[in-house]
């Protein structure tokens, strides 16, 4: 059974078509990079999965259940784009923020138990943020905040993690260790990961599969297949295809120098 099964999905905002005829599957243990230029529909596709935008055509199934009837949201951990969604004045401490991750498995009236607090403490220790538990979330550094939000995702023991541009708030060192942590979770705990980014050069170091969107589905499959594909070579231009694949093949080399091709270059080479 696929974790997510998307079949021929189209989404429109008023008359503007944001996604057209998208089909893909997310399986257990997958690490998929959702890539595409700004406005390509990456976040829209995630919103469609969560039922936050109406799907015009097609079907989405989550863990074998039609998305509209799906209620086990604790199986999916989501890290939204940090800068836009979090209330910066909110006086929450770290423990309270992580507790929010357990609400998805509770029915109204949602109450937090002693067992829940223990779970939060355990996940905080695991992610090495135990010493921050009583600190105010708003006073932490970008890297620390990201780890707290990751703990919020992980505390409900999800089978799928979705990250929307997680590196935006991070400096290069924090970004490196954050992605290493995600990769580790993916390999050791078999948690499927969807990583949304417009950074085509970076994602291949960690993801096994690539989904390239530009309102339409340009490519979905393994990186190795992407690299061999003549069609993709024509679409992206050999140079850019090589950069993405080069990154992928060097995934084990931690000292590898990273290229960040301007995404204008991708669009410029389209056929």
């Amino acid at each position: 059974m696929a974790i997510i099964d998307i079949k021929n999905v189209s989404v429109s905002y008023n008359s503007h078509e944001a996604l057209k005829d998208i089909s893909c599957k997310v399986e257990t243990g997958d690490f998929i990079g959702f890539v595409g230029p700004n406005g390509a529909g990456k976040t829209t596709l995630i919103k469609a999965i969560f039922g936050l935008v109406p799907v015009k055509e097609g079907n989405i199934e989550l863990f074998g259940t039609p998305a509209k009837k799906f209620t086990n949201w604790d199986k999916i951990g989501y890290l939204p784009q940090q800068s836009t969604s979090i209330n910066p004045l909110f006086p929450a401490n770290v423990r309270e923020v992580v507790l929010l991750g357990l609400l998805s498995r509770k029915k109204w009236p949602r109450k937090i138990t002693r067992h829940d607090r223990t779970k939060v403490d355990e996940i905080a220790e695991k992610l090495k943020i135990g010493h921050l538990k009583k600190r105010m979330f708003s006073e932490l550094s970008g890297g620390q905040q990201q780890k707290v939000l990751l703990a919020r995702c992980l505390v409900s023991e999800p089978q799928l993690l979705i990250f929307d541009e997680p590196s935006t708030a991070l400096d290069p060192d924090s970004r490196e260790s954050f992605f290493e942590l995600i990769k580790d979770l993916n390999i050791k705990s078999k948690i499927a990961v969807i990583l949304i980014t417009h950074d085509t050069g970076y994602v291949g170091r960690f993801a096994e599969k690539l989904l390239y969107l530009d309102k339409n589905l340009i490519f979905f499959g393994k990186f190795s297949d992407f690299c061999k594909s003549e069609k993709m070579g024509l679409y992206f231009g050999e140079h850019h295809q090589h950069i993405i694949c080069h990154q992928h093949h060097d995934a084990s080399d931690k000292h590898h120098h990273t290229h960040y091709p301007p995404h204008d270059a991708i669009e410029g080479e389209k056929i």
Binding site: W73, I76, V97, L100, S104
Partner: peptide, 22 residues
């Protein structure tokens, strides 16, 4: 009292709250 955590979540991070079924 009964909506405390729903209100907390929706006030702290509305996008995330939606994805947890609130």
């Amino acid at each position: 009292y009964f909506y405390y955590w729903d209100l907390f979540s929706a006030t702290f991070d509305v996008e995330y709250a939606k994805t947890t079924g609130i």
